[in-house]
Amino acid sequence: MDMDKEITAVQPTQHHQPISEPVIVIENLYKKFGDNVILENFSLSVKREENVVVLGKSGAGKSVLIKCIIGLLKPDKGKILVFGEDITMMDEDELATARTKIGFLFQANALYDSMTVRENLEFPLRRHWTSLGEAEVDKMVKEALENVGLTHTSDMMPTELSGGMLKRIALARTLILKPEIILYDEPTTGLDPITAREIDQLILTLQKKYKTSSIIISHDMNCVRNIADRVVLLLEGMCYAQGTYETLEASSDPKINQFFK
């Protein structure tokens, strides 16, 4: 198939300029479940401080892709280099160390519902940075909550929070370890348009503040337009096309065009 189209002529204008050094390099990724091939020779490179949005139909393999990057799923073939090290070859301990540099925002937030907001934020801190004292933990939790504007929720349970607040707390927990890469699994799905826009803005603000690189899975075209430095179209398990939002929107290819109607 000659589908690996590169539409990269236009540099992003509304967004910052990514630094050219790649932080994630995916080479010929192949993953299948039973007889169902999800990813087939999928390749992608993400530069430092770049926001890459992966667009595709439901069931196209977008979530599988980022779960392979974080090591929750093991690909059948291919390489995933994160800061030059192959995630697919790592053992449990190496993976745990690599994950301190990668944050993951789950679609359903995945906050621990038996813990308060504060305990949710403390959990990754106490696991990864065991030498931290109480005062330092307090300071980092406070900073994380200030970043998302929810300092008052510290002692609340996740069940007491609205959908938008849950997403913000989940984002705060993702950012608390100051990861250099963040993977977002449909960050605005299920939110009203106003809250979705606020989350988009928050993602951009925090990305600039902490200079993170991101891969964002999304169906929400407003989110794609607001956040993406580059859009990658995942079709039939492959990287079908990539480019800026504007470039892809202007494409006459019906397979690309159907997403922008």
């Binding site: 301190t100 789950f106 359903a108 995945a110 906050l111 621990y112 990754p124 696991r127 990864h128």
Partner: peptide, 11 residues
């Protein structure tokens, strides 16, 4: 609710 995956990701 992916809390087990989240725990894995949290090290």
């Amino acid at each position: 609710t992916e809390q087990i995956d989240s725990m894995d990701v949290s090290g």
